[in-house]
Amino acid sequence: MEELVKKRIKQVLKGDQNAFGEIVEIYKDKVFHVCFRMLGNRQEAEDISQDAFIRAYINIHTFDIDRKFSTWLYRIATNLCIDRIRKKKPDYYLDAEVTGTEGLTMYSQIPVDERLPEEEVESMELQDTIQKEISKLPDKYRSVIVLKYIEELSLKEISEILDLPLGTVKTRIHRGREALRKQLRTV
């Protein structure tokens, strides 16, 4: 797929705007999803992910064709999300208690090495709760958690996207996991 994308990029560089439409088609869901998990809001996610593609188009001549396009695109998108988060007033506290969840221990008997069965998690309420807790994370933890666990990217790729040393990425993932653990333990 990277090969096809590179071909399209070369066409875009020659001035063919339609070729960019195909690139948008290929990556729109991924970019939108990252933005949604980062921002926790569909409308904002749509605005920011569209901005990300427009920025990519305008700066396409600065993309190094020998590198992975998705890394470059994610980088633009996460930077825009982080900017947006920082512009918003923080109306949360990292250690805020999650209210209204007492007694919900339906996952407490799950064996350590098993992933949650999907049907159990499909309830929209739970989805909302998880998203709300992700949204409470400070942006530096939120971005690494989203890229690692929602986009399932490698630590190395995350370090390239966020332009951070590998060690910093690991530390942030550890802290992000700890913060989320405290927030989600009662879910």
Binding site: D29, F32, H33, F36, R37, R42, Y107, I110, R115, L116, E118, V121, E122, L126, Q127, I130, Q131, I134, I145, Y149, I150, R177, L180, R181, L184, R185, V187
Partner: peptide
């Protein structure tokens, strides 16, 4: 459990 919960969120 935290990881499983985060990963269980559906793709949008």
């Amino acid at each position: 459990k935290t990881i499983a919960l985060v990963q269980s969120t559906s793709h949008i």
